[in-house]
Write a protein that binds this DNA or RNA. Structure first.
Lengths: 151, 151
DNA sequence: AACTATATAGTAATTAAAACTATTTGTCAA
DNA sequence: TTGACAAATAGTTTTAATTACTATATAGTT
């Protein structure tokens, strides 16, 4: 991971912007997240951070990762983080998901119906589904939203 | 839900193709899934099916929904069904997810970097992220895969 | 240095999903 | 139509993930 210093600086600025305190826990969780090239779960980050902060709690790691997502220092990988939901509508359609209330809204958009999967991927994997996935805040959550509360 | 009869027929055919038994539980779970226009969780489907099959178990609903996904009669909504995973890489990139081992692979593809969010959505919601999300089977899972086992 | 709101540790509670086993039931062939 | 058997289910238990709670500690400010 190059430019780790810069990245930490970003975290500092984001925290200050949102009036969140810069705690060692937040810094360590953020560093652990960056250090792992892949897409770790809270448990994985917890294990990593524990080496530097032996008595950090899992709850703190969870809350901190949430906070990082809220301030835009990280994000929750799509395809994770919600109870499994099923869709029986096999017609081509797309999903918008509210990151707050987790509600999923269907929408149709012609331009998204025939996604060309890159040759490289078709080669490497067996592709089952390709879709445009959009997330954000729905109207009712938007109204409730005033400031970011980390705790 | 129009053409429910047709849909059931589809289920019958899919089951026969894959040599899966057509059980009342499967039919009811499938009907309940179709009947709910939204994106229900196993619990929600369970509640619905219980009206017709009072002593169906939640486990059966769960397994059945999985089976339906495996045979292509339904699918798991992206953004659900996996422990929450985080990504600290804010550069534009896309994800491929293996539906079996849940591993996430990054990839970059220029054509996917500037997704135009439909006007209608930008209006209705606060869009935070738009991405192409591709799922399927990774190579190592593909090798292990021989036939669909529903149980 | 002291104050105060915020964040944390430690733990408990909640929830979702998977595992397990005895029993039941589709399916097929006689 | 019946009997046999593999497959599927009910009922329950485990496991795992996330959230909730409260007393304590601390970052940022005065």
């Amino acid at each position: 991971m190059k430019n780790l210093g810069n990245k930490i600086e970003i975290l500092y600025n984001l925290c200050r912007d949102k009036q969140l305190k810069i705690t060692p826990q937040r810094v360590e969780v953020y560093k652990a997240l960056l250090a792992s090239g892949d897409h770790p779960s809270a448990e994985t980050v917890y294990a990593k951070v524990k080496k530097n902060l032996p008595n950090i709690s899992l709850d703190t790691v969870n809350r901190t990762l949430n906070t990082l997502s809220l301030i835009g220092a990280a994000f929750v990988v799509e395809g994770s983080g919600d109870v499994r939901r099923f869709d029986g509508n096999l017609e081509n359609h797309q999903h918008f998901k509210c990151v707050k209330c987790k509600k999923i809204f269907d929408f149709k958009h012609n331009a998204f119906e025939n996604i060309e999967v890159p040759e490289e991927l078709r080669h490497k994997f067996k592709v089952l589904r390709a879709t445009v996935y959009i997330e954000g805040l729905c109207q009712s959550c938007l109204e409730k939203e005033n400031k970011i509360q980390s705790n």
